[in-house]
């Protein structure tokens, strides 16, 4: 299975331990790109095979595959 980009969030009781959770996520195989402590979110990528290990980390409440957003071209009448 390929590598997927993802975001994950931690519950409020672990919000102050985001660095610890990022460490655990790395040990589970995640490449952590951003630790967004203000909103309790990590972003990065991982092999799809390791997703369950990520979900098993204490304090991780949700793991989601990253979405893309796209605007219409500048000349479009509806933006």
């Amino acid at each position: 299975m390929g590598r997927i980009r993802l975001t994950l969030c931690v519950d409020d009781s672990h919000a102050d331990d985001l660095g610890d959770i990022a460490g655990a996520a790395r040990r589970a195989g995640m490449t952590v790109e951003q630790e967004l402590s203000g909103i309790g979110v990590l972003t990065g990528s991982i092999d799809a095979d390791n997703l369950d290990a990520l979900r098993a980390i204490a304090g991780v409440t949700s793991v989601e595959q990253e979405r893309d957003v796209t605007l219409p071209p500048p000349g479009s009448p509806v933006q």
Binding site: Q34, L36, S37, T43, V69
Partner: peptide
């Protein structure tokens, strides 16, 4: 005109 959740969440933070 394209972006990702990662960039948007970074912007929110």
């Amino acid at each position: 005109g394209s972006g990702t959740d990662g960039g948007i969440l970074a912007g929110i933070q």
